[in-house]
């Protein structure tokens, strides 16, 4: 049942954003790997061996290791999160590889995701896109009763489909244009579908897209690689929805002149 494999491993090492980076051959450290280990546990094992050899461990982002936090993500043989569909790197297991297989591990590559170190990249652009409008303004204590506004089940379900995004960045990594359209649209759609999100819907569709462009992500050219790479299978129909909202907002939305004034 417990079978071990040897792999030909190449890992991208890069000391920081300004370092050029290079592949290192770690085949010698990638022998006798249990097929029941996850891909990250495989990297753990390689790291343990590197450390005992006096070498620095490979840096990669990871945290929950159960496919929900969105921290992990490397490109394995050209595929973000590796060969298994709807699966994050942490849930990918080594039984998906044959012994002797050649594995090239690279970071997510995009101008908007500078490399922090080795396989870890800076995805703070996603946070800034959310800052631009990925929220509903509601202070604690100001909310009406939760059942006051009914939300049709189909709408709530669709909204949840979009909200399932874990912000891992695989969509950017997979896109030939390094576009973050799928990420941005998932948030625009999640909030824009719900009745609570209507008040800020147009403003959101303009400002989030604007921030997306400023971060240096590419534009969507409808290749749909993002959807295929998405570990949560977020649909590109949300990109169509974002396009619709953005175009409509661009044509109709006027910012109010801010004459709120005082109360006396």
């Amino acid at each position: 049942m417990n079978e071990n494999i040897d792999l030909k491993l190449h890992v991208w090492r890069q000391n920081g954003p300004s370092d050029g980076g290079r592949f290192e051959d770690y085949t010698g450290y990638a022998k006798n790997i249990s097929t029941h280990a996850s891909f990250l546990e495989f990297l753990d094992v390689v790291n343990d061996r590197l450390i005992l050899d006096g070498k620095e461990a490979i840096a990669f982002d990871h945290d929950c290791r159960e496919g929900i936090c969105g921290s992990c993500g490397v490109v394995i043989n050209g595929q973000p999160h590796g060969p298994q569909r709807a699966t994050t790197t942490c849930q990918l297991h080594m039984r998906k590889f044959q012994t002797g297989a050649e594995i090239w591990v690279e970071p997510f590559r995009a101008r908007a995701f500078p490399v922090v170190k080795d396989l870890a990249v800076d995805r703070s652009g996603f946070d800034r896109i959310v800052q631009a409008g990925g929220f509903i303004t509601a202070r604690a204590g100001s909310a009406p009763d939760a059942n006051e506004i009914p939300v049709p089940k189909t709408v709530a379900d669709k909204s949840m489909d979009a909200a399932a995004c874990i912000g891992c960045g695989a969509c950017v990594a997979a896109c030939p244009n390094a576009s973050a359209s799928l990420f941005t649209s998932a948030k625009v759609a999640h909030l824009g579908l719900l009745p609570q999100g209507q008040a800020e819907r147009m403003k959101r569709a303009i400002s989030m897209v604007g921030q997306h462009e400023k971060e240096g992500f590419g534009a969507c050219s409808n290749h749909y690689e993002c959807e295929a790479a998405c570990p949560k299978q977020v649909s590109v129909e949300f990109i169509a929805r974002m396009n619709r909202d953005h175009l409509k907002a661009q044509l109709t939305y006027v910012e109010s002149a801010g004459k709120d004034g005082g109360a006396g």
Partner: peptide, 22 residues
């Protein structure tokens, strides 16, 4: 009780009945 109200206001897509209630 207030937490549920607050979360719904923030757009948490809780599961719904067909009638639209939580």
């Amino acid at each position: 009780v207030d937490i549920i109200d607050q979360c719904v206001a923030l757009g948490v897509p809780f599961a719904r009945e067909y009638g639209g209630l939580l």
